[in-house]
């Protein structure tokens, strides 16, 4: 656990992608998801891949962020590839080593599925790279709002999300202070297996919760003192505006989706 982690992947910028309304970003991403799973040709996937890369270029995201964003899926990609290459049979034999063969069917299907996964990750990543977690929260709150009718506390959930985001750095500092305190008493967080290291986390977690809940009490008191009431109607200081660019992005995706259906890409 190093204190130098940065939360969120947001890269500040002024590009047109950055300025899209978070609500529209979410809608576009969902449409792209539908599009991704309607495409069933390599040409279609390649086209969408290029489109996503173009969006990265417009947002001026350095290539190293793309590579870093794909690292989390490395193992699942290897896992899937191994299964496809060695266990899916059919087509021409591409490679033979004793009784083990790699056949063309498995390779084609495997690479198709992985390309699709990569596009999915890159598209989602672009949203988190160009939107602050807080405005993404506001965007999500908008879509959760209908659930209020069923008595679900959506605005409270959005509020605690904002509070949680705000307190992550504070609690991080707190936890590294606790860690130093434990280390000075002879605790060792650096060595040992993951289980051993996890066990050393217990004397960290308890005081961390004690201090976190104390902050929760103080915060609740402060909010109450400022007139916050659970369930009361709240307005926002910064309203997110909708521009013609937002509609353009949405329409582009709808057109792509329609043409994917019509032309069977």
């Amino acid at each position: 656990m190093s204190p130098s982690i940065t939360l969120g992947q947001y890269i500040p910028g002024e590009s047109s992608i950055h300025r899209l309304n978070p609500r529209f970003k979410i809608m576009v991403l969902l449409l792209l998801l539908v599009l991704l799973f309607t495409l069933n040709t390599y040409q279609g996937l390649l086209g969408l891949f290029l489109l996503v890369l173009a969006a990265y270029a417009i947002a001026r995201i350095p290539a190293r962020y793309v590579v870093r964003g794909l690292r989390p899926i490395l193992y699942i990609v290897i896992f899937a590839l191994v299964i496809y290459l060695f266990f899916t049979k059919g087509g021409v034999v591409l490679y033979r080593l004793g009784p083990v063969t790699i056949e063309s069917e498995g390779a084609l299907l495997g690479f198709f599925v992985i390309t699709r996964l990569v596009i999915l990750i890159l598209a989602s990543l672009l949203i988190t790279l160009t939107t602050t977690p807080l405005s993404l929260t506001h965007g999500m709150e908008y879509f959760m709002k209908p659930l209020q009718r069923f008595g679900l506390p959506t605005s409270e959930v959005a509020m605690i999300m904002a509070i949680a985001l705000r307190f992550i750095p504070t609690l991080l500092e707190e936890s590294s202070r606790l860690m130093r305190a434990q280390v000075s008493r002879g605790a060792d967080f650096e060595r040992g297996s993951i289980f051993r290291r996890a066990r050393t986390l217990a004397p960290l977690i308890v005081p961390l919760f004690v201090s976190a809940f104390r902050r929760a009490d103080e915060l609740a008191l402060a909010m109450e003192a400022r007139g916050y009431r659970v369930g009361a109607l709240r307005t926002r200081m910064h309203e997110e505006k909708v521009s013609s660019l937002d509609w353009a992005a949405l329409i582009l995706l709808l057109v792509l989706l329609a043409s994917a259906f019509v032309f069977q890409f």
């Binding site: 509020m159 949680a164 307190f167 976190a212 809940f213 902050r215 929760a216 609740a220 008191l221």
Partner: peptide, 22 residues
């Protein structure tokens, strides 16, 4: 002074969320 139980419920939830994310 002890804070409003309802507000306290949500701030506590927020802290649990922060620890999880952390």
């Amino acid at each position: 002074a002890s804070p409003d139980r309802k507000i306290n419920f949500w701030t506590k939830a927020a802290m649990i969320g922060a620890v999880y994310a952390l």
